[in-house]
Design a protein around this nucleic acid. Structure first.
Lengths: 349, 349
DNA sequence: TTGTAAGCGTTATCAA
DNA sequence: TTGATAACGCTTACAA
């Protein structure tokens, strides 16, 4: 039924090992033999059994992608799809397959990783999250198994290579952008404060305020989730302060959408009454009304570079930088298009 | 270095085959031996080599996921991430791993599929698209390899199992919903007319109009892409007709967002001036202003059921229905919240 | 209930 | 430049 290397060998009148060498395009095989063998392979419709190959060569030509444990949420956020796109691009080019984790809980995912690694199903792993004191990270480090983290690992001085943005810098730039436009009442709406990325952006925001001698007001800092429900109350509270902010930094476009919706419901106009700037620049930011200013963090580049590093790590050929920072760009759209002049918010013509 | 079945056998003082049987939890091994062997496995940190296992047992415990060739676009649309979520859920439960295609062109993906299949890397395949005269589908059918299509295959009478929605019915229901609310000027904005799903929804829309003796107006039918740019002109043209529609059916939430944005730019209010109903009910539909009415097509259920069918197909144990229709629900939100009375559009209190 | 041994389809080492 | 053969780690008849 199945055509094996032996069948090809028999028909081509050579030894199986010769066929194997032809497949590997070994330079020590004559062009004549190569042509002959290849023709037979074609005729018989031969395709290598990858499991047999992996068994003996001890490599799988596959990369394991580990999703965060809150899969439900993860699959909602275009971020993951985008980063997958970047990973996909390079791994295809480099002839690596993609193996995805499917577990829902940390525990499940942990066993999956062990199974992938010990079962020799993958040659390396990309972690699509970074969590404090993560058993998976620890396991990988201890095993000395090639892996790359997207986002900053909790233990920065740790052994793991990672690819990230300058989140501190980006948030600082946005804040400075607002300050330059005269804003002094600037709020910060972030996702879970347990995420490192949230904290870094918060710190960048604070730093910019400090530099400009603007006091950091605790009431101006809000943490909420992607979903509308959670955020609504917090935004309402924020906007009903005696001095509501004239500008808002939001750490994720999805949260940004929620904020936009809530504000419109409250009859607060963007950017006439308040300016907004968020992060990620997913496609949908162009489609909102008004279009949402957002930091383009080059999501697929994160995936692409992580893959690049991982493959280098696997082949152990080049030195891989422990840390890679992907550049970002502020994409200014209508939602942040206002200046504060004499304590009044004015729209740029 | 690596702990194999032989090492375990040696330490446990049994034959390798016994260890193998313990792993398979064979009923013909004494509880005593099982306990003993398991303890040794634990002690030595044994994990089976999946490649060796796949080689001999000729199955991979893995499912191949094939993305549409226009990956870029695919990764933009939350639909794919959601369906992946559904697939992920069940395959994890059933102990199948996920293998993803990475190719960008049809040609590339075709070779990937062949490699997966002939290379014995996967036991079955889920196609996340359906295209007319698709070489991959043909290959799979000819090979008699287990696979399931999400969406309706072009060749309906073909041999392939598929999981789909009743797109005709859903579009018809929306149209009837509008008609019931007094609308008679109803437009249709669809994605690429080459997609079967677009055509089915278009037909449902037409059927409902017919049933209500409302003429189908060609100017009311527009095809556009996800991105805003393309659609803008078409929408503008549509709305500047002598008799612009009072209601719009849009075949995808992403297009819906674009339409919403364009209309707001044009100063046309939703639902005061026009009602909108779209498809997919992705999370973001709740976050727009106004919230977008949308048909919940149970995306993850599509993935879940496809996986279910595929696994049954693989194990060849149960009869698998060639066709599975996942139920849908109209989720009515503010964007469609208007009635036409005496030729005037009125908002429901 | 357990052991023996063959074989899955490759690659790689050693000879020739 | 090619052939013979062992080995990769596991499963599964067949024996015992």
């Amino acid at each position: 039924m199945t055509v094996t290397i032996k069948d090809v060998a028999k028909v081509a009148n050579v030894n199986p090992s010769t066929v194997s060498r032809v497949i590997a395009d070994s330079p020590r095989i004559s062009e004549y033999t190569k042509r002959k063998v290849r023709q037979v392979m074609e005729e018989l419709g031969y395709h290598p059994n990858l499991n047999a190959r992996s068994l003996v060569s001890n490599n799988a030509s596959a990369i394991g992608i580990i999703m965060p444990s809150s899969v439900e949420k993860a699959f909602q956020n275009p971020f993951f799809a985008n980063v997958l796109g970047g990973i996909s691009n390079l791994s295809h080019e480099k002839h690596y397959s993609l193996y995805m984790s499917t577990g829902a809980t940390q525990q499940e995912i942990y066993s999956e990783v062990v199974k992938m690694v010990e079962g020799r199903r993958v040659d390396g792993i990309i972690l699509l999250y970074s969590r404090a004191n993560d058993p998976i990270t620890n396991y990988l480090v201890e095993k000395n198994f090639p892996f790359v983290v997207i986002g900053k690992p909790y233990n920065e001085e740790g052994k793991s290579a990672y690819v990230d943005n300058d989140n501190f810098g980006a948030a600082k730039e946005i804040t400075e952008h607002f300050i330059k436009n005269g804003h002094r009442l600037i709020g910060f709406i972030g996702g879970s404060p347990e995420l490192i990325v949230t904290m870094e952006r918060l710190n960048g925001y604070k730093k910019a305020l400090e530099n400009a001698n603007i006091p950091v007001v605790n009431e101006y800092i809000v943490h909420t989730e992607f979903h509308k429900e959670g955020g609504k109350g917090a935004i309402a509270k924020l906007m009903s302060l005696k001095q509501p902010p004239t500008a808002l930094i939001v750490t994720d476009d999805l949260i940004g959408f929620g904020v936009l919706g809530t504000l419109q419901e409250m009859g607060i106009k963007v950017p006439e009454d308040i300016c907004i700037f968020s992060f990620n620049n997913i496609m949908l930011t162009e489609l909102t009304n008004p279009p949402l200013s957002s930091v383009d963090i080059n999501i697929d580049q994160l995936g692409y570079n992580a893959t690049d590093s991982l493959i280098k790590l696997i082949s152990n050929t080049e030195n891989v930088p422990k840390k890679q920072i992907i550049p970002h760009q502020l994409i200014v759209r209508e939602s942040s298009n206002g200046k504060v002049i004499n304590n009044k918010l004015k729209i740029n013509n």
